[in-house]
Nucleic acid binder design. Structure first.
Lengths: 292, 292
DNA sequence: ACATTTACCTGACTACAGTCAGATAATTAT
DNA sequence: ATAATTATCTGACTGTAGTCAGGTAAATGT
């Protein structure tokens, strides 16, 4: 199939060009593994367990790498406040200098791709790279139930509320809206789904059982860079499947006219507009869909 | 600068996603270095020196890898006909099976990216990948003088003549055209420039001194996937620089109306249309440009 | 209070990727 | 004929990346 060939060609071209650049620019003097660590520790420092999680590395290996970086005077570790088992890695001033240097090299690597191109080609390349990046992310999306109180879930909800605040003419105040706490989205009363791409949260959606047999879709949000790539559709599909599984007969939701993409998504999925079923201050449209 | 950030973001996203895929799909059982070799030897076999050149590997290292593959019964080597120093590597039937398996895995890796996406997203991804691939190639282009008789130069010229054959209404027969041999493009009488991207020829152009003080631009060709990305412009710039350096006062060229991109390029670069200065059967337009 | 889990560490080990210094035989240049 | 070059090979070596099996101390569950 022609699509597959293009993807394979892309993989080869990119691993050669980008891979070579990586070795050329970042590999100088310092092993790549160490550079990765310095980069990930960053100027703010980081808990070692978080470091392990992000880079998906063996705990012994990370430990050894940190010892090596300590030996070079780039890093020091200190116990985290609160839990004395946890340790934090921090860059020393020399480490910080190395971090800046890595950033400069990353910039140079990027520039070495852009520099030979003319202005219009640069623009095309940058646009196409953004498109590929977002679609690769979209193709990696995994949607799973998540405790509504978890840090990742809370982060998504903050993004969602901020979006509402920006979009709504009069802003958005969670206090004024119909209250819905983590309990409402916790089984068996409801469920909270989180979408992750490359491990990072990029979207969410929740189902809340309001009246027996009736469920309500809430908190459907997708990171702006991934909008229009089918992530919202997937979350909605899974929420509906969940609703069917728990025997709900009807799904309801409300939305504001400023959220055009959401409204289009609901209409496309067979939600019909109905008279208001609540008196929340924010929604302009109310929808429902009968499940069979 | 925003462009640089996008390129860096792309690099990170792609190395993670594509890099992980590579390890997951190709790394099974066989070291990546060996897999690369099997892949590069391919169904047709290959001279070992060519293998070294393409993968840019140490000769001892390649030798060792080949011994290992021989030990596994995947490869055998035999002297090349003609030069007894050169050896050819060929896949045995077991090696061929492994090669097919690698291809299947590459396909699966590509599919694992495409599969989670909807049809329109796939289309967008494939298009953006092609765009990125071509622009990355374009940004890697290096243009250097090359003996007009070399294999790479001859390959480009074949591509060029094939293009003429396709574009011209009446086809193209090199025998009918004004003769120009490798000598005409060899210093000091002329020069032949070759554009390579990732080591592979992707374009060419030649300068031929016809009358004292007058040069002629000929054989300007760019691979179709890289057209419109500034490669032709660069070749032309270098040919003009070369002409100036050797003291030419006037540059001439002729072209056929079917080669619209070329004509646009010449006009953009200050070539003015003039009456025919030769009676070749193929050109429809004649141009010249005074050098200062 | 005691067992279990969590976070981190050390030591011992492996595989992979690659480099470098010759050695040998065939070919080409002078 | 002889020297220089080319293509390949072998042996000895290095550095990087990573795994695995324990071990210690702090925190948590019961």
């Amino acid at each position: 199939m022609h699509e597959i060939d293009q993807v394979r060609g892309f993989n080869r071209a990119v691993t050669r060009r980008i891979g070579l650049l990586r070795d050329k620019f970042l590999g100088r003097g310092r092993p790549f593994g160490e550079a990765r660590l310095v980069y990930e520790i960053g100027s703010a420092g980081i808990e070692i367990r978080e470091l392990r999680r992000r880079l998906d590395l063996d705990s012994g290996y990370v430990s050894r790498l940190l010892r090596s970086l300590e030996g070079q005077g780039l890093v020091d570790t200190l116990p985290a406040s609160g839990d004395a088992r946890v340790r934090c890695a921090r860059l020393t001033s020399r480490g910080l200098a190395e971090y800046e240097e890595l950033n400069r090299r990353s910039d140079s690597a990027a520039l070495s791709i852009l520099a030979p191109l003319g202005a219009s080609q640069r623009e095309r390349l940058v646009a196409a790279m953004a498109e590929v990046e977002n679609l690769l992310l979209a193709s990696d999306v995994v949607i799973k139930p998540e405790p509504a109180g978890s840090a990742a879930a809370q982060w998504c909800l903050r993004q969602y509320f901020e979006l509402l605040g920006r979009r709504f003419e009069a802003g958005y105040d969670p206090g004024q809206a119909a209250p819905a706490g983590a309990d409402d989205f916790t089984p068996p009363r409801g469920i909270f789904l989180l979408a992750r791409a490359l491990g990072n949260p990029v979207g969410c959606g929740a189902l809340k059982r309001s009246v027996p047999d009736i469920g309500e879709i809430k908190r459907l949000w997708v990171a702006s860079s991934l909008r229009g790539l089918g992530v919202g559709q997937k979350i909605l599909d899974l929420l509906e499947a969940e609703a069917r599984k728990s025997g709900l007969k009807l799904l309801r939701l409300d939305t504001n006219k400023a959220l055009r993409e959401a409204e289009a998504l609901y209409r496309k999925n067979g939600y019909r507009e109905v008279p208001p079923f609540n008196d929340d201050p924010y929604p302009d449209h109310w929808f429902e869909k009968r499940l069979d």
